[in-house]
Design a protein around this nucleic acid. Structure first.
Lengths: 249, 249
DNA sequence: CGCCGTCTGTTCGCTACCGCACTTCCGGTC
DNA sequence: GACCGGAAGTGCGGTAGCGAACAGACGGCG
């Protein structure tokens, strides 16, 4: 009943689900189970079978490449604009990365088997997800080009913008320690770079909380990689609805 | 006649085409046009519609991310194991990268429209190409993680191994200048790093020609990123046929 | 209240790599 | 044989970011 009656269903906050024709979304809905993400939760580990895919509705998730020396390099971000579990879409049962919840939130979860069936049964599903896969690929490729070519300040600005795109509001939990792991630099390096951004009036932070106070300014000091990747999403998934600001709607 | 008679057709040297069932390959064959790659030829430019896809049979192609400062960062390599034109597979008509021939060779070319039709008509095609897309994604993501975390020596070794995988024989044209662009470092930095590798007896070079003299040794000094990406290809595309060495068969 | 763990600020010496420039060497070409 | 252009070797000063360490500040908790 409720599951097949579109009126009983709130509009999905996930950008991919929202892009589906209502009737196809209605067919998918019964297979989606709302779940909570906890911070630091591992959605899937490198080289291990992926049990389920997730459509985030709030919060965001990092794609991490495990390195020999034990720590991990972040090479991509997934939030309410995306899908966690692209390997399944592309016909594999695993991939080489860790997908780790960075900012807690909620998601719609779907068993891998059900997802595979749905891809065959619901023809509108694969095209939109394929285009998301390409957009995410562009993001990851850009991140890679950005690493090593651009300075810490620029990359920090870029990372903050990407995170800002994926959360609600201008203020969110964030430590220097965490940022240093994300960017693969020393914690002290973040302290310096963040200090510069703060002195310039672009951000404000204190003890585990970061606030974006001048987004256009931040975009100006960030490298071009931010804009390039963001435009890729908009080009491939369509502009994020009407005049609304959030990235994922 | 010849186009539909499998016996009249040589086995394809492209790993993806070789993985197709013979009858499906026979259906695809008439649409494939053998072409020559010239060095420095641009197969498609960033943000411009992709006219045709290419299945390389020899030589290799770089995926380059254009940077604001004018030069480009290499973030992936495609050779006879792959396909140039993944954006079409994923439902777009363009992407944000330049695909540039680095080592001349030959390829089988297919018009974008014909390729889209074939994806619908020949059911075995999409699955194998999707898995390739994932493997290439893993390569690109690894390259990104590798940039900035690993030293020039290691990255140089890695790049030489990747190139070696995609050419025939142990000796191929290669200049320090070129390598410096690929790795995003100074030309002088390559001279030093290559000198180290040569002194260690792993490679030999002179005036535009590079020879791999100790492949296992090179693998040992390279970072883990080489092995990780290579295993991803083998896992997703099946081991490269029997006891034969080349990467793409 | 005092304690402790987390977060941030800052310093020190060090290394890898940069930007730039100059030289040498080699292979062709006229 | 003289010349030229591309390729490789080398040196110089400069700097971004490293690794390690220490100190202050805040906040939660017993």
């Amino acid at each position: 009943m409720t599951t097949s009656d579109p009126a009983a269903r709130p509009a999905p906050r996930n950008r991919l689900l929202a892009a589906l024709p209502p009737e196809d979304l209605a067919r998918l809905w019964p297979l989606l189970e709302p779940v909570e993400f906890a911070a630091r939760q591992i959605l899937h580990a490198p080289e291990e079978p992926i049990r389920a895919v997730h459509f985030p509705e709030s919060g965001y998730v990092s794609r991490l490449a495990p390195m020999e020396d034990g720590d991990s390099a972040e090479i991509g971000l997934v939030g309410p604009e995306g899908l966690v579990g692209l390997a399944i879409l592309l016909g594999a049962d695993r991939d080489g990365f860790e997908l780790l919840v960075q900012s807690p939130g909620t998601a719609l979860r779907m068993e891998a088997g059900a997802f595979r069936d749905a891809l065959d049964r619901i023809p509108s599903l694969r095209p939109i997800l394929n285009r998301y896969a390409l957009a995410h690929f562009e993001q990851v490729a850009r991140t890679g080009a950005c690493n090593g070519r651009h300075h810490v300040d620029q990359r920090l600005a870029r990372w903050l913008l990407m995170a800002h795109d994926r959360v609600e509001g201008d203020s969110f939990p964030m430590t220097h320690e965490f940022l240093s792991m994300m960017l693969g630099v020393r914690r002290a390096g973040i302290t310096v770079a963040a200090g510069t951004l703060q002195k310039a009036g672009l951000i404000r932070y204190e003890r585990g909380r970061m606030e974006i106070t001048d987004r256009p300014g931040l975009e100006a000091v960030s490298c071009e990689c931010y804009g390039t990747a963001r435009r890729a999403y908009d080009r491939l998934l369509g502009p994020p609805g009407a005049a609304r600001k959030p990235f994922w709607r």
